[in-house]
């Protein structure tokens, strides 16, 4: 099964050739948690502050069923 992942701001440093309009399409086994997904993408989980799955707040333990659209957001710190 595949999911589509969108990452924001500084999280993009962990993803090569990220295209904001496409995101990342990733094949994962059913039941994969967001935490495992982050491992697969090489994104440190402590850098991710907000996780959205199909527009709903999710957690690191949320299990993915396939075809989800996932948004990952870091805290920002500029002024």
């Amino acid at each position: 099964m595949a999911v589509q992942v969108f990452v924001a701001a500084t999280l993009r440093q962990y993803v090569s050739n990220y295209k904001p309009e496409e995101g990342i399409r990733l094949e994962i086994p059913e039941g994969t948690t967001v935490k495992l997904l982050l491992d697969m993408l090489g994104i440190p989980e402590q850098e991710v502050k907000v996780i959205m799955v199909n527009g709903v707040h999710a957690s690191l333990d949320t299990q993915l069923e396939g075809n989800e659209r996932i948004g990952l957001f870091p805290a920002v710190g500029g002024g």
Binding site: A8, A9, T10, A75, V76, G77, G79
Partner: peptide, 10 residues
């Protein structure tokens, strides 16, 4: 609290 970066803010 408010913070910004690029086109993101909180």
């Amino acid at each position: 609290h408010g913070a910004v970066r690029g086109i993101w803010g909180q």
